[in-house]
Design a protein around this nucleic acid. Structure first.
Length: 587
RNA sequence: GGAGUCUUAGCUCAAUUGGUUAGAGCGCCGCCCUGUCACGGCGGAGGUUGCGGGUUCGAGCCCCGUAGACUCCGCCA
C-alpha cells in the first residue's frame, strides 16, 4: 500500500497517529539541519519534517530532493510548533520516519505554481501542465458536469447509446475528416460532424429517448472556442414538442449548475424570436447582461432631409442606433476602430453623436430638425456623457453592424468584467433557409432535416424560401451559443420538398440520404432534439477564455497536438495498403 | 485565404534616442544554515536576442523577408 491518507486529509485530531503519504515534492525548505517538504497530491498539501537528530540517513536523503520528485513517506502525525493558517492541513506535520524515492524529476520546463508559461510550451508538456491546480480543477468540474448530465437524463428515462465514429460523408455543413477504407479501396469513411442521422434513426428504431456525450469532428479552422474534435451532449426524443425540449434542457442545466457551481439558476428561461433578437441586439445570440438595445429610428427620420438616413429608409432599409452610455469620452483611435469595424460588416461609415458639455458633438446633427433631435433624445434617452452610434442600411446589415459595435463597446467599457450573472435565454423561430450568394443556391440554416413551422410550409411550396421559419431553437448563455436543436421532418414527402428547395437532385438524395428516406417510409415517429456544446459550457462554468483550458489534450490553433506532434507523416507501406498516393512532397 | 499582436537565459520579464562585456527574479549546480512555510546567505554555470537579409561607424531596438505562437475575419448545416 502506497499511502494511508491523501495530502489534504490529516488534521489536529490525527496527532499521534502514524500515517503514510505519497505524492510530489511541491516545495523543499532545507534549513541545514531540519528539512521541510510540502508534499502534494491531487487533494492538497501536507508538510513533512525531517529531523537529523531523529533520523539522520533519511534527513540526508531528503536534502537531495528537488521539486516534482515522487516520494512515499511514513511517520507520525504531530502538531506544528506554529501552524500555517493558509493550509487546511496547516495545524499538523508528518514527522518522517521512512522515505522511499519513487521517481526523480529532471529540470522542469516551467513552474507548477506561479504564472503559466507560453501556451505552446504548456501544450508541449501537457501531462506536466495538468499538475497545475487550475487545470486539474477544470477537469474535475468537467467530470461533475458530465456526471450530473448522465444522472439527470437517466432519471428522465433517457438511454445513452454510442453511435459510430467511422461514418458517412455528407456534403452539407462543415468539411469532413476522411478515413480511407483499406478493405474497399477508393472509398472513405467520414468522422461524424454530429450524430445527427444516427440519432434520428434511433428514433425510427423506437428508442424514444436517446442521449450521448458524443465526440464530434469538423475539419474547419480553429478558434479559442473551436477545436477539430469536441464534445456534444446530444439528445433526441420522440413524440415531443419544443416546450418539452425546453423544459428538459432547463432542468438539465439547473442540475449541471447545481452540481458544478452550487448555484440555483432561474427557470424557465426567457425567450426571444430570431427576429426579435436581431432587432434588439443585432445578433442571434444576445448577451443581455448589459442593455444598450438597438433602437429603431424609422419613425424619427422617415421624412428627414439627411440623405444617408432617408436613402436607407426609402429603399426599405433601416435606421437604427445604440446609446453607449457615458462613453462620450471615447478616444479618437477607438472611434476609428469602431468605424473600421462598421465598414468591415458592410456599413458605408459610422455616424455618431458625442454628448459633451450639454452639446451634441457630431458631423451629422446639423442635418437634423429640432423635432428630430427631440424625438432622438426621447427614443434613446440621451443624457450628458452618452455616445450615440448609428447604422443606416439594409435591415440585416444595420442590425449586424450595431450588434458587433454593441459588443465591442461593452468590451471597451468592461461592462461584463467580474459579472457573475448567468443570463440564459432561448432564441426561437430561426429562418429555415438562407440564400448562398456564392453558391447561388438556398442552404439550410440548421440542417436539411429541420422541420419548417407548420404555418410556413405553404411558403416553401410557393417558393418563398427566405420567409419560411424553422421549428428550431438555440439556448444562449451570456452571449455564447451553448446549444441548438430542432423538431425534425419525419415525413418522406416533406423531406423531399426540402431537398428540392435545397437543390438536391433525386439521384443525390438517394446516394447521400437514401437510408434515412427509406427509414421515414417505415413509420418514423415525430421527433426532435438538441445538442449542447459541452466544451463551451464547461469553459463558461470554469470562467475560462478558451476551451483548451477544459480539455485534457487539446490541439493548438493549427490543429497540431504539440505534445505528440500529430498529425504526422506515415509509412509509405501504410499508404500503399490504403491505395492512397501523395501528390504533395514535403521538404 | 486575410488582419492584428507577439518571439531576449530552462521559465517570467527588463535593457532610455540605435551606443561599453544584453541584466533581474525564479529554476539549475556548489558551499553554509536546526522551525521553515515564496526559508535565508555566499558563490557559479547558463544567451547565434526565432531565422535570413538590409540600412548604419555601430542593430535586441530601424527596414524587408521568413518561421512559429495567440486573437479575430472568412469558414464552422
Amino acid at each position: 500500500m502506497y499511502r494511508t491518507h491523501h495530502c489534504g486529509q490529516l488534521r489536529a485530531s490525527d496527532v499521534g497517529a502514524t500515517a503514510k503519504l505519497a505524492g510530489w515534492v511541491h516545495m523543499h525548505r532545507n534549513l541545514g539541519g531540519v528539512v521541510f517538504i510540502d508534499l502534494r497530491d491531487r487533494e492538497g498539501l501536507t508538510q513533512l519534517v525531517f529531523r537529523p537528530e531523529e533520523n539522520l540517513p533519511v534527513t540526508e536523503l531528503a536534502r537531495t530532493l528537488r521539486q516534482e520528485d515522487v516520494i512515499q513517506v511514513s511517520g507520525r502525525v504531530a502538531a506544528r510548533i506554529e501552524s500555517n493558517p493558509n493550509l487546511p492541513t496547516g495545524g499538523i506535520e508528518l514527522v518522517a520516519g521512512e522515505m522511499r524515492i519513487l521517481n526523480r524529476a529532471g529540470v522542469l520546463p516551467f513552474p507548477v505554481d506561479g504564472d503559466p508559461a507560453n501556451e505552446d510550451l504548456r501544450l508541449s508538456y501537457r501531462y506536466f501542465d495538468l499538475r497545475r491546480p487550475q487545470l486539474s480543477r477544470n477537469l474535475r468540474i468537467r467530470h461533475r458536469i458530465t456526471k450530473a448530465t448522465r444522472d439527470y437524463l437517466d432519471a428522465q428515462g433517457f438511454v445513452e447509446i454510442e453511435t459510430p465514429i467511422l461514418s458517412k460523408s455528407t456534403p452539407e455543413g462543415a468539411r469532413d475528416f476522411l478515413v480511407p477504407s483499406r478493405i474497399t479501396p477508393g472509398t472513405f469513411y467520414a468522422l461524424p460532424q454530429a450524430p445527427q442521422q444516427y440519432k434520428q434513426l434511433l428514433m425510427v428504431g423506437g428508442i424514444e429517448k436517446y442521449f450521448q456525450i458524443a465526440k464530434c469532428f469538423r475539419d474547419e479552422d480553429l478558434r479559442a472556442d473551436r477545436q477539430p474534435e469536441f464534445t456534444q451532449i446530444d439528445i433526441e426524443a420522440s413524440f415531443v414538442v419544443p416546450e418539452e425540449i425546453f423544459t428538459l434542457v432547463e432542468g438539465m442545466l439547473a442540475a449541471i449548475f447545481r452540481a458544478s457551481r452550487g448555484v440555483e439558476i432561474s427557470t424557465p428561461f426567457p425567450r426571444l424570436t430570431y427576429h426579435e433578437a436581431m432587432e434588439q441586439f443585432g445578433t442571434d445570440k444576445p448577451d443581455r447582461r448589459f442593455a444598450m438595445h438597438l433602437v429603431d429610428l424609422a419613425g424619427v427620420f422617415a421624412g428627414s432631409s439627411f440623405k444617408m438616413f432617408r436613402g436607407a429608409l426609402d429603399s426599405s432599409g433601416a435606421v437604427k442606433a445604440i446609446n453607449a452610455r457615458q462613453f462620450a469620452g471615447i478616444t479618437t483611435g477607438q472611434l476609428e476602430d469602431l468605424t473600421a469595424m462598421a465598414k468591415h460588416y458592410g456599413a458605408k461609415g459610422l455616424a455618431f453623436i458625442k454628448v459633451e458639455d450639454g452639446e451634441w458633438k457630431s458631423p451629422i446633427t446639423k442635418f437634423f430638425t429640432a423635432e428630430e433631435k427631440a424625438a432622438l433624445t426621447a427614443k434613446l434617452q440621451i443624457e450628458e456623457g452618452d455616445l450615440i452610434l448609428f447604422a443606416a442600411d439594409q435591415w440585416e446589415i444595420a442590425c449586424e453592424v450595431l450588434g458587433r459595435l454593441r459588443l465591442r463597446v461593452a468590451e471597451l467599457q468592461r461592462l461584463t468584467e467580474n459579472s457573475d450573472t448567468l443570463d440564459f435565454l432561448w432564441v426561437t423561430e430561426f429562418p429555415l433557409m438562407e440564400f448562398d450568394t456564392a453558391g447561388n443556391k438556398w442552404n439550410a440554416v440548421h440542417h436539411p432535416f429541420t422541420r419548417p413551422k407548420a404555418e410556413d410550409v405553404s411558403l416553401i411550396e410557393a417558393g418563398e424560401f427566405g420567409k419560411a421559419r424553422a421549428e428550431a431553437y438555440d439556448v444562449v448563455l451570456n452571449g455564447v451559443e451553448i446549444g441548438g436543436g430542432s423538431i425534425r421532418i419525419h415525413e418522406p414527402e416533406l423531406q423531399a420538398k426540402m431537398f428540392a428547395a435545397l437543390g438536391v437532385s433525386e439521384k443525390d438524395q438517394q446516394a447521400m440520404f437514401g437510408h434515412i428516406l427509406r427509414a421515414f417510409r417505415l413509420g418514423a415517429p415525430p421527433h426532435g432534439g438538441i445538442a449542447m456544446g459541452l466544451d463551451r459550457l464547461v469553459m463558461l462554468i470554469c470562467g475560462e477564455q478558451s476551451i483548451r483550458e477544459v480539455m485534457a489534450f487539446p490541439k493548438n490553433n493549427r490543429g497540431i497536438d504539440l505534445m505528440s506532434q500529430s498529425p504526422s507523416e506515415v509509412n509509405p507501406q501504410q499508404l500503399r495498403e490504403l491505395r492512397v498516393e501523395l501528390i504533395v512532397d514535403r521538404d
